[in-house]
Design a protein around this nucleic acid. Structure first.
Lengths: 131, 131, 131, 131
DNA sequence: GTGGTCTAGACCACC
DNA sequence: GTGGTCTAGACCACG
């Protein structure tokens, strides 16, 4: 699998997995009906605790993104693609909203905020695809 | 004092204090040489434990924003105004930059991102940014 | 662990820990990537409160010397070895510089100062490795 | 009086006064039999609490450096000059000894220590007379 | 009165 | 098991 885990960062590992699986489905990297790696295998590959992978998969099941196939494992559920794209949008938008709130709390004017956004968007274009 | 603490949110109380003191200095609400509220007094007003306030003040001291005046209290250190203004900008800008990066990872085009920002800025004026 | 705390002295316990961890890394006794003793374990060994250890570790983290590995513990951050060696040198040199300044303020001549240093260095040599 | 107090520093104010009076006597700036400024006057001049001045004078009395002259105030006691010079030496030497101890604890070799001292002594020659 | 340190014990999220 | 946060209460030095 092409996931990357940052154990030292502040984002919980299980959230990183949930996020990356979700995004992979949204991108079409994982297709409906496809089997995701087994808990043990993924845990081995990412060098993390199987419990953590299990927890992520459980959450993805709760969200209806993954579903169990008896005797086989977990597969991407029907309708997940659309759902994941929508979820991805929401995630990003909520984050923007959060940051925007912070900015407003800081006594920055709408104009100052817009300027900052423009500056940031112009700047950070060619970064590493990761992190 | 004019600080407001959200005990329910996920942001640690001590960080909220650090943030608000920093911003107060950046805004000029607290001026260089002025004494900040005493640990005990602020703790009383915010209805939190003095240790928590002390922790915030200690961090601000480590950052060079506050300095102790023995037996009197803590005062805003010289040069803090500029430092706090810069810190405030960096805090916000870094957060924006982070989110922007996430957005780009999600295969969103620059235009889609801009549209989202516009929508959020128009919308979320008096909303809770919570997820 | 090989740490020694002097609870009676005027140096705060948490600073002693910070210092000893820093020096341990500088000496290579603690290597990059290695986990430091857990908060609770070290507290038990030194017979002090876990909060005190936590405070030391938090400071070392703020300095970038340690970093948390979620659910595992705290490890020596990359680049810490060099940083700690440099910090150790600075700590000592600054202290010397301070004392030297005091000596000069006291109208002592350079020669008198040198003589004093020689005397002190000759004296306190083969004491117990401790203290 | 020509004393200088640093209220923000880590050295207690009362100690700064004791030290400066002691050194003034050692230097001959204050002579045996001379009256030191009254508690109130010195407190006013240094913009500090009279209690603090009183505490310093009390300590100097305890050390036999100052003595009360009924109806007049406090004067430099007989024999103080020599005593203060000796005390000054001790103060400096003890500080050196302390720092040296720290240096040895840091696993620095005698040679490294000597080199550091030489470097520091060569460097810091033309500094401000104060602090 | 002030801040600084330390202890004791609790709860949380994460692995 | 791990660290992170917070509370409660104590003691100290300083002014």
């Amino acid at each position: 699998m092409f996931f990357q885990i940052d154990a030292a960062g502040s984002v919980p590992v299980y959230e990183q997995i949930v996020r990356q699986v979700t995004f992979a489905i949204a991108d079409g990297a994982l297709r409906v009906g496809e089997l995701v790696p087994s808990v043990r295998q993924l845990a081995r590959e990412l060098a993390i605790n199987p419990n953590t992978v299990a927890r992520s998969y459980r959450q993805l099941q709760d969200e209806g993104v993954l579903e169990t196939v008896r005797g086989k494992g977990l597969q991407v559920a029907t309708g997940s693609a659309k759902q994941c794209r929508s979820k991805r949008l929401h995630l990003i938008r909520d984050r923007f909203s959060q940051v925007l709130q912070e900015a407003r709390q800081s006594q920055l004017s709408e104009d100052e905020i817009r300027q900052m956004i423009d500056a940031v968007m112009a700047n950070g274009k060619p970064k590493r695809g990761d992190q």
